[in-house]
Design a protein around this nucleic acid. Structure first.
Lengths: 252, 252
DNA sequence: CGTAGGCTTGATTCTTGTCAACCGCGGTGG
DNA sequence: CCACCGCGGTTGACAAGAATCAAGCCTACG
């Protein structure tokens, strides 16, 4: 049903390119030289433990950062202890590209798994954009995708029931992981607990559990120690009433 | 409790400046000459009827547009006829500034009231930014505000009950109208029907009605033919667990 | 004068939340 | 080495918040 290798990446040897290149390339066609420039970006890497808050201090002030491995989230704590997860950051995602974290922003970012990130000076990104219009276009589409994801989350929370919300989220994650080549025969890693799923979707952990059981029973998904298999994307899409297009990935 | 005149605008004669100037100025201090430039922006105005879809065709392709009067919304229809309103556009709001409407975006914009808009060529905006760093900064903050509003909506839909959602929305609208000088002693126009409120907040019209009644009975608000009076902002804020800061308006 | 759209209200249903208990596993310390 | 603990997942009983269905009202408008 779903090709395990996203066509957008197929002309390259996906294994030799970074997740950022793969994602941008599946948003906007990049030339081999564009890709090379991306691969050569000078970065300083850093590793963070699980469940740590990500603070941008010192040198990081002037850098955006790129997720290289693991998962992080933007979230907001409520006075009563409730938590709303606003978005998930996965490999290839850029964060704080316009310095929004340093402005008085009302949410935090923290790691969900151990995380490997690379700091990229915002000046390098600006230079990149000036010299490589394809990369600029791709980054622009990437920003639009991020917005589209936010809007789609609003649609989920406002108009879909629990089954729809969960189905939609699973589809979204699947498609995003697919674009960066981290799926294999519709299987990918989800490090999220059911509590975290609930905090993304505005549901309780208990209810998430029950709905997941139903989805399993209907053979739409399989879950096995942190690995999720999407057995029937179309089925999930139908439940969520969502189409892959909103992510803006080009192809087929 | 709440000053009827936002301090941010107080050094100018607010009546002589456009809503755009007022909003930007309350996000980032502008010099009189900055304001003058904004006022002198060449625009072509247009008026649209109530409940019309806003399509950007022809000349509009290359323009952003600015709401000068009335209210519009971005929304998304669901296959089952349901509607989720994603955001509200009020006077002073810029729309389609990066051409997102012309990309394959999965939502529409339509008018809620009769609407007066001004098309502004994107090239003019770019030129503006190059020559007037204050304006650039303000527009940047404006974009961040728009994002912050989206995120806050997610928090609302995910973590607040009906009372909290409605209280939050009323606060947000109040603060936004205040920034453009369209409130007077905590009263402002809301052209929204209860059905539309429901479609913003993920509630049914009936439930919105009931909750509004409670808020009225608790003397938090008064409603009289399309005019809303906020009798007790602090009360509403407490219910919504929200602070004005997320909007990023400078002052006090 | 009749109609339509929007508001109001009641009765009822249903989705989801809350509370609570239990299981299984992995890690840790005695 | 084993007992214990804590976290994550699973399940049930019950409660609450919101949706649904339905009817009536008011007002602006043709």
């Amino acid at each position: 049903m779903v090709a395990p290798v996203p066509p957008a990446a197929s002309i390259f040897d996906r294994n030799s390119f970074s997740f950022l290149s793969l994602k941008l390339h599946s948003l906007h066609a990049l030339s081999p030289s564009d890709i090379q420039v991306l691969e050569d970006l000078p970065t300083t890497e850093r590793t963070l433990d699980k469940d740590k808050n990500l603070i941008t201090e010192g040198q990081m002030q002037w850098s955006a950062f790129l997720i290289k491995e693991g998962m992080a989230m933007r979230y907001r704590m409520m006075p009563d202890g409730g938590r709303q997860i606003l978005s998930l950051l996965i490999p290839g995602d850029l964060c704080d590209i316009h310095g929004s974290l340093t402005q008085g922003v009302s949410h935090s970012i923290s790691t969900i798994t151990q995380l490997r990130i690379a700091a990229i000076p915002r000046s390098s990104i600006a230079a990149l954009c000036e010299q490589h219009p394809n990369i600029q276009a791709a980054l622009c589409l990437d920003a639009l995708q991020e917005e589209a994801i936010l809007r789609e989350r609003i649609v989920s929370l406002g108009r879909r029931d629990a089954r729809g919300r969960i189905s939609h989220l699973l589809c979204e994650l699947f498609w995003r992981y697919e674009a960066i080549g981290l799926t294999a025969s519709s299987v990918f890693q989800i490090p999220l607990t059911q509590t975290e799923l609930g905090d993304i979707l505005g549901l309780t952990q208990v209810h998430v559990n029950r709905v997941l059981r139903v989805l399993r029973e209907q053979r739409l998904i399989k879950v096995e120690n942190r690995k999720l298999q999407i057995c029937n994307v179309n089925g999930l899409q139908d439940i969520a009433e969502v189409s892959r297009e909103y992510l803006g990935f080009r192809e087929t």
